[in-house]
Write a protein that binds this DNA or RNA. Structure first.
Length: 521
DNA sequence: AAAAAAC
């Protein structure tokens, strides 16, 4: 499978080739043709699967026709964090370099006037975090009713972060005559309900992450007392061939203290968390990407989606509160077919959290020892240590390590239950609920001819479209979208008569690894 | 429990 067969235009393909990509990822292969058809997409995929390009590339092509009016953006992409938003903007720059696209990036923490100017110029692409976007809306700087394509990215994370009311408000300002692309790493019922409301007759695309909890990530876990974690981390870093690494902390203030400690010990480190000023966040991230900073100490602002190629190591200075976050954190390494390394420092009281993670990923994280340090075992929930007591060395002046938890009621989940069989993490796979041939039968004329049969060459948009040139197709590509809403119902009925007893399945069925499908805890 | 996001 090559990019050429997906129906993208020559200038976009050129930009992809220049970037060095030759083969689409499963989600790109499945989603790009659907987006080009003008249909809604419900994508179950997390970053690292090539999800961003799966909507950026076709959007560039669709946007090649026409231009935006002042304050009336033609497309809107919602992202949960500022960094993700900036990353999507970068993607548009990279792949849209052969097109003249006006872009506006509306995120908090940076100055308003620049963003206002970009809006006034007329934004073909508007990329935003919800808060700042609504701020502009309230000031009357944007009219959203001309938005033709809406992308809601990382929907589950938006839910976690309490953005859904904002998102609903924003979607309420859009015309129902739009194409919607909705992406989420997980599909809990709440997200599913949202998708049902925002999408119209969507195609579902499901992709399991390329390294769900790490077939190509070497994992390790060391149990060390809380006050020895910094020393343990230094030992770990030195024992490893660390090219570049993220160290995750649960709290922002720990990010700050750990950064100080690492710097004091001569490490080349920087910090990233949400209390930093936005310019500082961007600068640190850029320097990390450039390799000027070797170790990035970060809060979970960096846990999901950040696309940093070739990161050799992820360290968890703390066990993440939610097991899903563990998967996201370690997923920052082991990308693009490389082997990644992930090491977690757990304090003796964090046994419950570790157990939850191991249950989620279906394997036990190998316990490791840090040279020269005492490693202990987890406390049992009744306050006693489990297993064989302490490792070599012993500690002099053994001071009490914080309050031990009092014995509560016996907790059933501490009994070792047989673990569910591990999910096959083999290859990233993508499944469409309906085979594509099916799609082409049920919908004419837009879906009739595969786009690869009508090659187009790029023309700058100042040139008048040719009467019967390939560009005409593109214009046509947009028109049926209007028809879609009106013939939505009849189409559904037809489908039932086509031998289907039920409408297209909404559930993801077996295509989602169990641990991803779970909502939370 | 923490973090994220608007001023």
């Amino acid at each position: 499978m090559s990019f050429e067969s997906l129906g993208l235009s020559a200038p976009v393909l050129q930009a992809v080739a220049d970037k060095g990509y030759t083969e689409p990822t499963p989600i790109q292969e499945k989603a790009i043709p659907i987006v080009l058809m003008g249909r809604d997409v419900l994508g179950c995929a997390q970053t690292g699967t090539g999800k961003t390009a799966s909507f950026v590339l076709p959007m560039i092509d669709i946007l090649a026709e026409g231009r935006a009016k002042s304050r009336m953006p033609r497309t809107l992409i919602l992202e949960p964090t500022r960094e993700l938003a900036a990353q999507v903007a970068e993607n548009f720059e990279i792949y849209g370099k052969n097109h003249k696209l006006n872009m506006a990036l509306l995120i908090g923490g940076v100055s308003f006037p620049d963003q206002e100017r970009a809006l006034e110029r007329g934004a073909d692409v508007l990329i935003a975090t919800p808060g700042r976007l609504l701020d502009h809306v309230e000031r009357g700087g944007i009219l959203l009713n001309d938005v033709k394509i809406l992308v809601i990215d990382e929907a589950d994370r938006m839910l976690d972060m309490g953005f859904i009311p904002d998102v609903e408000r924003i979607v309420g300002l859009l015309s129902p005559m739009r194409q919607t692309l909705f992406f989420s790493a997980t599909m809990p019922p709440e997200i599913r309900r949202l998708a049902d409301r925002f999408l119209s007759n969507p195609k579902e695309v499901t992709v399991s992450p390329p390294a769900s909890a790490g077939t190509n990530i070497v994992q390790g876990l060391a149990i060390v007392p809380e006050d020895e974690k910094r020393e343990a981390l230094r030992g770990l870093i030195k024992s490893q061939d660390v090219k570049n690494a993220i160290v995750f902390c649960n709290r922002k203030r720990d990010v700050v203290t750990l950064l100080g400690s690492l710097k004091k010990h001569g490490f080349n480190a920087g910090a990233l968390h949400g209390d930093m000023s936005q310019p500082a966040r961007m600068e640190t991230l850029e320097r990390f990407k450039q390799g000027e900073i070797q170790i990035l100490v970060a809060s979970d602002v960096a846990a999901r989606g950040l696309d940093i190629v070739d990161m050799s190591h992820v360290f968890n200075f703390d066990v993440p509160f939610s097991p899903e976050d563990y998967v996201h954190r370690i997923g920052r390494t082991g990308r693009a077919g490389k082997t990644g390394h992930s090491f977690t420092l757990a304090s003796p009281s964090e046994g419950d959290l570790v157990q939850a993670i191991e249950k989620l990923i279906g394997t036990t994280i190998p316990r490791i020892e840090v040279a020269g340090l005492v490693t202990t075992d987890f406390e049992a929930s009744d306050g006693r240590r489990r297993g064989r007591g302490r490792g070599r060395g012993g500690r002099s002046g053994d001071k009490p390590r914080g309050p031990r938890r009092e014995a509560k009621e016996p907790r059933e989940h501490h009994e070792r239950k047989p673990r569910p069989p591990a999910e096959p993490h083999a290859e990233a796979r993508a499944e469409l609920h309906e085979p594509r041939e099916h799609a082409s039968r049920e919908r004419a004329p837009r879906e009739q001819a595969p786009r690869e049969q009508r090659p187009r060459e790029h023309k700058p948009r100042e040139h008048a479209p040719r009467e019967h040139g390939p560009r005409e197709h593109r214009a046509e590509q947009h028109r049926p979208q209007r028809e879609r809403k009106s013939d939505h119902r009849p189409e559904r009925r037809e489908r039932r008569h086509e031998g289907r007893d039920e409408p297209a399945p909404v559930g993801l069925g077996d295509h989602v690894p169990a641990f991803l499908a779970r909502s939370s805890r």
